[in-house]
Amino acid sequence: MPKTLKLQPKAALLRRFCRLEGRIPSYTEMLTLFGYRSKNAVHGLLGRLQQAGYIRKHKGKLALTARLSGAVKLLGAVPAGFPSPAEEELVDTINLEEFLVRRPEATYLLTVSGDSMVEAGIYPGDIILVEKGTTPKPHDIVVAQVDDEWTIKYFEQDAQGVRLAPANAKYKAIRPKRSLTIGGVVRAVIRKY
C-alpha cells in the first residue's frame, strides 16, 4: 500500500519554523524539519505544498502564502505584476471574529443556562456574545438585572415603560419594579456541534 502523505502536519512544522526563525528554512534544514533523508523528498513535498496553496514560488524562491503565514495579504505588498482578480477579492474578506464582534473592547462571552429564549433560538449551553455599554433598542435581546435577578429577554418599551419579554410560552413578560440594569445587548449566538 502506498504511504499517504499528510500535508497538514508538514505545513504546521513549516509554519512553526517560520514563526520562530522569521525566515523560510533551507533545503538542508527541511531535511531535519520534516524528517527526510533526501532532498528529493523535500522537493516533492514542496511541490505538493505549492499545489495545496501553502507556499508559492516567487522569482525562483520560495514564499509563504497567507494560508501558511496566516497574515492578511494586502494588494500593496505584491512586488511585481498585476494582482489576479482572485487575490483582489480576498482583500475584502473578514474573519469570523470580525464578522461576529462589532466592538471588540466591549464584547464578552456568556454561557446560557436558562430556557427563557428558546423560541428565539437561544438554548441552554449556547454561548452568546454580549456587548456592553450600548443602549438597547426595542426588540433587542438583552442580558439584564431586574430587581436583583439576572435574566435574558427581549427588550421592549411601551407606554408603561420597559417590558422584558421572554421567547418561551412557559414564561410571562416582566416589568422591573425597583431596579433595572442592562448588562449588555446580545449580538450573536454560538453553538458548536
Binding site: Y108, L109, L110, V112, W150, I152, G183, K192
Partner: peptide, 22 residues
C-alpha cells in the same frame, strides 16, 4: 475550570467570559 467546547488547558478564547446565570 469550565472550558468552552474547543478550548484546552493551554489555549482559550481571548475574550473575557461573564459568569451570570441567565
Amino acid at each position: 475550570a469550565a472550558l468552552l467546547p474547543g478550548e484546552t488547558r493551554r489555549r482559550r478564547l481571548a475574550i473575557p467570559r461573564l459568569f451570570i446565570k441567565v
